[in-house]
């Protein structure tokens, strides 16, 4: 702050405007300082997890910004000694989030197109069912979904992947977002294609899908983030440690795994669980912000 310590008194022979200006400038500077401080505060915990992951265990509880000594022990421990190890958790998270993103794009764009453009009996009622699925809390579905999947062998072995993918393979949000976007595209474009003799699928694939970029981008980002961060269904449906995703691994380390206070590898896992989403956020911030604001549905 470079402003004078003492405010100028009202009776000093200075025009009123500069006094006002100066106090406004001072207030504005204070406001910006607070804003920047609060913005930095948003990043501090994440920065702290990165710093801690490079510390030694005794150093990890010290309030120092630079690791002393700087070590990769925490990462080495997370990669080789944690059970399940960090690369396995990362692979499982990436596999499940990747597949679910693809299924939501494929199934969501097909269904979104049908609900926006094709005429068939019962369309409105069926679309209402799609919207109604957004109102049903997951907890109500916990027992039945688990029992159904358990009954058909989707809670064992590789079936666990399939189960956890199936339950979020398509969301009402994805269909809704893509349908709304298709409704804004003029009909003339596809009618021209239809007259050229193209079938419904060809029209969808060649004419409409290439125009849906922004909607597909938003659905891809929201789905990947939601599935990568997913907690409830992976917790219920992934029974073997070898199939855990990063969030379930973190829960396991903290509560049952006995790693609750071995902070450096624990923070390395936090970093790996967060970093891919941070990278996506840096590059596709617009999709995050607009997607959230448009749907009002998180994840």
């Amino acid at each position: 702050m470079t402003s004078p310590a003492r405010p100028i008194r009202a009776d000093t022979p200075v025009a009123i405007a500069p006094v006002g200006d100066r106090s406004w400038a001072w207030r504005r500077r204070l406001a910006y300082t607070l804003l920047i401080a609060y913005a930095i505060l948003m990043f501090v915990p994440f920065a702290w997890s990165i710093i801690t992951s490079f510390k030694t265990l005794p150093d990890s509880v010290r309030l120092t910004i630079l690791p002393d000594p700087f070590t990769l022990q925490g990462w080495d421990f997370a990669i080789t000694k944690l059970t399940p190890p960090l690369p396995v958790l990362f692979f499982n998270s990436a596999l499940i989030a990747g597949v679910v993103t693809v299924t939501n794009l494929v199934l969501g764009s097909l269904a979104g197109y049908a609900f926006a453009r094709l005429r068939f009996p019962g369309r409105e009622v069926l679309f209402l069912i799609v919207l109604a699925t957004l109102m049903i809390p997951d907890q109500l579905r916990l027992v039945p979904v688990y029992l159904i999947f358990n009954g058909i062998g989707l809670t064992k072995g590789v079936g666990q992947y399939l189960g956890v993918i199936l339950v979020v393979a398509i969301s009402g949000t994805s269909i809704f977002l893509i349908r709304q976007y298709f409704l804004t595209i003029p009909r003339e474009l596809e009618e021209a294609a239809r007259i050229d003799g193209a079938g419904f699928f060809t029209t969808f694939l060649r004419v409409m899908l290439p125009l849906a970029g922004p909607a597909l981008g938003a659905v891809a980002i929201l789905t990947f983030q939601g599935t990568w961060n997913g907690f409830f269904w992976p917790l219920i449906l992934l029974q073997d440690q070898g199939h855990y995703t990063l969030p379930i691994g973190l829960l396991f380390f903290r509560t049952a795994g006995g790693f609750a206070t071995i902070y450096p590898p624990l923070m390395a896992t936090v970093v790996m669980a967060t970093l891919p989403i941070v990278v996506l956020y840096v590059f596709f911030q617009r999709y995050f912000v607009e997607g959230i604001a448009a749907t009002g549905v998180k994840g």
Binding site: M42, W228, N229, I277, F288
Partner: peptide, 17 residues
């Protein structure tokens, strides 16, 4: 972007942290 930033992480990661 900064104020929304804490919302992007998974509940498990942020709670552990």
């Amino acid at each position: 972007a900064a104020f929304y930033f804490p919302a992007i992480a998974s509940s498990a990661a942020i709670t552990t942290l």
